[in-house]
Nucleic acid binder design. Structure first.
Length: 414
RNA sequence: GCCGAGGUGGGGUAAUGGCCAUCCUGAAGGACUGUGGAUCCUUCGAUCCGGGUUCAAUUCCCGGCCUUGGCCCCA
């Protein structure tokens, strides 16, 4: 027996149906905000991803050489491909550009709860837009999507990488990139003890940084101004405006300047959403403002986006299987052809099955019952002679004797 | 990459160094050739893979694969 590869999953019809239902709600919500779907290739040049995230990530990428000697990679994420497309084909479009995607991604990692080697991301990229308005829209849309699929129990954290960076560069001129990166990593891990020791050893002034990390609530906003006064007035006002706009959607993020999001190209407002009950992998959404376009050689443009971890969301989202009315046309042996003719008619409007097993009437009904068919339409000699059909409601057991038109009308109700 | 737990029919399980590997469920058929869910009967179907120990391994040992909880990482 050949097994499926490590970290991949098969989705049986029931689960696939659940996933589709949730996917559809996400798409509908994004589209209602004016976002249009974009599709990019499943594999790309490896360089696209190393350029964005550094050589170090090759270990966690499904990378391979093709027969022409090209280094390729199964996409580990979709932001970089979207930005690539933007630079090649959409730079001259009118802004803002509202794009969304839903596709599978691949990472060569140790699978665990909520983490697979093939996984799905629903994401959005917003290119252009004034910083405060655009950041508001990103956060509001991500929350709107989660609410649309019935999720309410999550924590939204809002941070600002620009202020975070400034808090350590302001009082420490000439701080090299490597140290800065190490500081960021410790912040992201919330390992403040090690951070404190490191700063002392390196004689780095961490006063502003720790003051910033201490801030938790909206009411602390005034304190930010004290820390940076008056240098970063614009950025602080942006945060204030974003929070104010978010209140129209009844969204009240927690300030959390420990969001470092690891990477250099983030700058400005960032956010993460965490859910409960997912063990170590509790983050279901991450996003913010980033500067990738220049890195890829395009004209600078304000950009931001977010990605939702679809598989993690499916672990916590409540059942939402849609229930379409299903019909089995049940026939006696001599009337099978008539049953098929009737099915052809009914399929114009309904989900209709016919017996393929050569079962007798009783067994056909037993089958219908066990697979959750809602209605049986019985076709036998009597029906053909009368030019009528027997409609049986399998839930109630009620039976009625109807003409074709009446049958369609009855089935079409509710 | 590291630490821990685990792997028996399609799903859920029991047991065992040797005898037809247990039970539930499921599926197919029948009792019942124009009416489902109940009951009874028949049938189908499993010890993850490889090596070792042994007269004999599903059982004990080693390795691999996969799953799972966590660490690292997390674009």
């Amino acid at each position: 027996m050949i097994e499926k590869p490590r970290g991949t999953r098969d989705f049986l019809p029931e689960e696939t149906s659940r996933r589709r239902a949730v996917e559809k709600k996400m798409r509908d919500t994004a589209e209602r905000w004016g976002y249009a779907e974009i599709k990019t290739p499943t594999f790309e040049h490896l360089e696209l991803f190393t350029l964005k995230s550094g050589e170090g990530i090759i270990n966690e990428i499904y990378a391979f050489e093709d027969k022409g000697g090209r280094m390729l990679a199964l996409r580990p994420e979709i932001t970089a491909p979207v930005i690539r497309v933007y630079i090649h084909e959409m730079q001259n479009r009118q802004k803002p550009l509202r794009l969304y995607y839903f596709d599978n991604c691949f990472r060569y990692e140790r699978p665990q709860k909520g983490r697979f080697r093939e996984f799905w991301q629903f994401g959005v990229e917003l290119i252009g837009g004034r910083r405060d308005l655009a950041s508001f829209e990103m956060i509001a849309l991500s929350v709107d999507i989660l609410r649309a699929i019935g999720l309410d129990d999550f924590d939204l954290h809002l941070g600002d990488i620009f202020l975070l960076k400034r808090s350590i560069t302001r009082g420490n001129s000439g701080l090299d990139e490597e140290k800065q990166r190490k500081i960021f990593r410790l912040i992201d891990k919330k390992d403040y003890n090690t951070l404190n020791t490191f700063l002392k050893d390196e004689k780095i002034n961490g006063e502003d940084l720790f003051a910033l990390l201490d801030l938790k609530d909206l009411s602390d906003l005034g304190d930010i101004e004290k820390i940076f006064d008056p240098d970063e007035k614009d950025e602080i006002e942006d945060i204030q405006r974003v929070l104010d706009l978010l209140s129209t959607y009844d969204i009240h993020p927690r300030l959390d300047f420990s969001i470092a999001r690891g990477l250099d190209y983030y700058n400005g407002i960032v956010f993460e959403i965490y859910s409960h009950g997912l063990g170590a992998q509790k983050q279901i959404c991450g996003g913010g403002e980033y500067e990738l376009i220049e890195l890829f050689g395009g004209k600078p443009e304000s950009t931001r986006g977010f990605a939702l971890g679809f598989d993690r969301i499916m672990e916590i989202v409540k059942e939402s299987e849609r229930d379409e009315k299903k019909i089995l046309v049940v026939a006696t042996e001599e009337c099978r052809k008539d049953a098929i003719t009737l099915s052809k008619e009914l399929r114009k409007r309904f989900v209709v099955e016919t017996d393929l097993m050569g079962r007798n009437l009783k067994a056909q009904l037993a089958y219908a019952n066990s697979v959750g068919i809602n209605f049986a339409v019985i076709v036998g000699r009597k029906e053909i002679e009368d030019n009528r059909f027997t409609l049986k409601n399998l839930a109630s057991g009620e039976q009625v004797y109807l003409t074709l038109d009446e049958l369609i009308e009855t089935l079409g109700k509710d």
